[in-house]
């Protein structure tokens, strides 16, 4: 059985030839894999080594270095909550604590919250990113609604 879907295989193939060196494609390929599977499995790395001759140590180094990549299973909805200076001042910690509790509850079971170093939108503090969508001016009052709405809107894609 092929490790990657036909669509992802095409994408990887195009990325492999897109840059000056094949190695430059590592980050974009990992993005593509993670977009589909939410994390990067050992099988994926094996396939990158076997089918595309990437060095597995180099791939693993990259996965481990960058915050976005995960080599452990992740839930489909990744909530990255900024905990940097401005968001901290605007109360991010309380919301993260709240979300951590929420993620144990019905309706949030496919969500996982991680404090995140900076999302680059401090004028909208506190800020969170659910997968690729940014939410600003998050508060204890509005956060549950934001998350649930996001899950409802995107679940067809993420839970396929």
């Amino acid at each position: 059985m092929a490790v990657f879907s036909a669509q992802l295989t095409d994408k990887i193939k195009s990325l492999v030839g897109r840059y000056e060196t094949k190695r430059s494609a590592i980050l974009p390929i990992l993005h593509a894999i993670q977009d589909e599977y939410h994390w990067i499995h050992e099988e994926h790395i094996n396939a990158l080594e076997k089918d595309y001759e990437f060095n597995r140590v180099q791939v693993k180094e990259v996965i481990s270095f960058y915050d976005i990549y995960s080599s452990t299973p992740k839930k489909p909805f990744q909530i990255r909550f900024c905990n940097n200076i401005t968001c901290h001042m605007m109360g991010s910690q309380q919301i993260v604590d709240h979300l951590k509790d929420q993620c144990e509850r019905t309706g949030f079971e496919n969500c996982e919250v991680t404090p995140y170093p900076c999302l680059g939108k401090c004028d909208g503090a506190p800020v969170m990113l659910i997968n690729k969508t940014r939410y600003e001016n998050v508060s204890l009052e509005n956060v549950d609604g934001m998350v649930l709405k996001h899950v409802q809107t995107h679940q067809k894609k993420e839970l396929r």
């Binding site: 430059s24 494609a25 993005h31 180099q58 990259v62 270095f65 960058y66 915050d67 976005i68 170093p117």
Partner: peptide, 20 residues
Amino acid sequence: AGAYICGEETGMISSLEGKK
């Protein structure tokens, strides 16, 4: 892919080369 240091110009270059 989420690394402050890639804002440093040579860190960015390393990243663009597919490295840490």
